[in-house]
Computed example of a mutant assay.
Amino acid sequence: MALTEVSGNKTFGGWQKVFSHESNQLGCPMKFGVYFPPQAEDRKLPVIYWLSGLTCSEANFIEKSGAQRYASQYGVIIVNPDTSPRGLNIPGDSDAWDFGVGAGFYLNATRDPWKTNYRMYDYIISELLPLVNQNFNVLEGQQSIMGHSMGGHGALILALKNPGLFKSVSAFAPICNPSVCPWGIKAFTKYLGPQDEGQWSQWDATELVKTYNGPPLELLIDQGSSDQFLSQLNPENLVEACKSSGVAAILKYRDSYNHSYYYVATFIGEHVEYHFRHLN
């Protein structure tokens, strides 16, 4: 599959690049960022995938997280996709900030008019990962995943639904139990249909962890204590589900931090180091 380099900027000895390609899964052009640390010039490196939250594109993480400094320090590649299909002009896809464009929720929609294009789960697993493995100097199979808010939800469900695929998973302020919060209920109802059809639990980390059956996995959940959206996130629900199912979970509360990228940028170095340890 052909890749087009959209931009490249030297930073911390490496290169922050953005690529575009035609997505077969989503039926539209998609962009994703790749940070190549200086070590990538002469050897293969492990990869950390980052999934962003509601309203974000690939640009937010690149411009606001400060992760490049730590990727350069530890010698890891960071890949960050967009959060939804774009430019399709599906009726209603741009009517609200918490649904449609910028709000793909990392699932495969099953309802019209979303099911043909809103397939972010398959895009990442079946298209983006192979694309990265085939085109860049990466250690295939040596990958971890992290994300923020809706992207934290995405990181958790991708790790839980694909046992052993990711060496580690972490999430900043993730939507831990979307089946019971307004953001998740809205998205799931439109993308998947009514809850009684039984599909919601397939895309909810708190439900998925109850039936997890794979290699040992630890969920690192990072949460600001002053998060203005904390009532939407329900980290305790996920931690309790982990206890009952025997899956390891770490919940770190950060005193006075909110939901913003100021919070993410403060602790992103800890997360990169955490994944580096698991990848090596």
Rank of each mutant, 00 (worst) to 15 (best):
K186T: 14
L219V: 08
T11M: 10
P37M: 03
S260R: 07
T55G: 05
S168R: 09
H153Q: 14
M1S: 13
P235N: 09
I125V: 15
H148Q: 15
S65H: 01
V209N: 04
S245D: 11
N133P: 00
E273A: 15
G152W: 03
N237R: 02
E140I: 14
Q68C: 02
P216V: 10
P37T: 06
K210T: 11
P46S: 15
Q228S: 12
L219M: 10
Y253P: 08
I175P: 05
L192S: 02
N258Q: 08
G8A: 13
G33Q: 10
I124P: 01
S179P: 01
V132N: 04
S126R: 14
P85G: 06
K210M: 07
E236N: 09
S65V: 09
T55R: 14
C176E: 04
P38M: 01
I77N: 05
G141Y: 08
L251T: 09
V101N: 04
S201A: 15
A96W: 07
A265I: 00
L220A: 11
G152E: 04
S225L: 08
H153W: 00
G214Y: 06
S126H: 13
S226W: 09
F166A: 04
R86K: 13
A2C: 00
P91N: 08
K252D: 12
E207D: 13
Q68M: 13
V180E: 08
I175L: 14
F105C: 07
D222T: 10
S7H: 02
Y118I: 06
A187W: 01
V34C: 10
K44H: 05
I48W: 03
S149T: 06
T4S: 11
C181A: 12
N137I: 00
P130K: 13
